[in-house]
Computed example of a mutant assay.
Amino acid sequence: MKLASYNVRYDIKPDNITVQQSLDSLATTDPLKPPIYLALTEEQPWSTRRLRVAEILLNEDVALIGFQEALIRQVNDLKELLGDDWAWIGVGREDGVKKGEFSPIFYKCSEIELLSTDSFWLSKTPFKPSKYPGAGCTRVCTVGRLRTIKERKQFTALNTHLDHSSDEQRRFGASLLLHRARFEAMSTHSAVFVLGDFNSSSAQTDSGAYQIITGSIPPLPIDPVFTQKYPIDPAQLPSFGCLDLRTEGPRRNVSSNFATFTAFRKPGNTKDWSRIDFVFGGSNRGWLVKQYNVRSSRSDDGILASDHRPVFVDVDLLSG
């Protein structure tokens, strides 16, 4: 099963071009005519970028995708482009319905079935749309309990986007994610995956959230309401953490691309590059990593599908 995490950049340049109009425009393009190489170096409208996003994903034969920054119109566009074999779960972070950015989980219906889903907010009032004090934005996590159709193996996926401006929110959010992931591991006795844009690197000064989710430093105290809804037996999985799946596969099968955020910069400008997008696996295991790959988002004509690169991980589920 191939998992992916992809921040697609919210639609900052909206227009009225439909998906079908974008697809129809391809029919008027000569497939043998070379582009003007690297001609475009700035952010392009979503109506242009969405075809590139779908192209990357469909060429990877991915089965589950955690998107970040997708507004409802982008969610609907992605559903249309990926096709009828895809379904999705998630809510708008501003109202718990359709307002604001989503952190949706898309899954391929011919390979995966949904057992249950819920969402929670990465704030001090996690069961209603809310923003952590001092955070730049409201942040939400989408949770899905799923099962592979062929092997009947269950797993849980959590997908989220931590704050861009508040390190305290990132640390608090990571603490909630770690608790919920441990609860899922204990409750389902199956694999757990955490996907998302952490806005926290694995190696720099802003690595607090990364260190918490991986168990390198202790989590922050979280709301008792959350721990009461998702109770944990201290005796079970006492050293539970989430493992960075880049470190868990055969070294020769790990992508040489390291950065996942590139910004909309010209080729060769690596000023903002960093690794902040991750796929983690619970330390209770139940999975085996076969390959880890970070794909470029840039096409020959210079268009960047997003200011992030997609992260792909091939896993075998071993139990559940």
Rank of each mutant, 00 (worst) to 15 (best):
N76A: 10
V53E: 05
G90Q: 09
T156R: 01
Q74I: 13
W88M: 11
S123A: 03
L178Q: 10
I89H: 04
L82F: 06
T117G: 02
R139K: 15
S110N: 13
G92P: 00
L64A: 15
T160E: 06
L114S: 00
G92V: 02
R171S: 14
F102N: 00
G92T: 00
S165E: 15
Y107T: 05
E151H: 01
K124R: 14
E111I: 08
L177K: 14
E69H: 12
A157T: 11
L82N: 07
I112D: 02
G134P: 14
K98H: 09
E69T: 15
F127W: 00
S116H: 11
T156P: 01
D167T: 15
R145T: 10
C109R: 12
E55P: 04
L162T: 09
I72T: 11
R139M: 09
L78K: 07
E101I: 01
V53K: 05
L115P: 07
F120R: 05
G136K: 11
A87S: 05
A63W: 13
T148R: 09
R171D: 14
I56T: 15
F106Y: 14
L146T: 08
R152T: 14
K131A: 02
Q154C: 06
D85A: 10
L176H: 06
P104G: 04
S110R: 09
P104M: 03
S123E: 00
G92D: 01
T160Y: 07
Q74V: 09
V143S: 10
P126H: 03
L51H: 15
N59W: 15
D85S: 09
G100D: 03
R171L: 12
L71S: 10
G83K: 03
G134W: 02
L146V: 11
F67T: 15
R152M: 13
G144Y: 05
G144M: 07
E69D: 05
D163H: 02
C141F: 08
S175L: 11
F127A: 00
D95I: 07
L177T: 06
W121Y: 07
L78R: 06
R182Y: 04
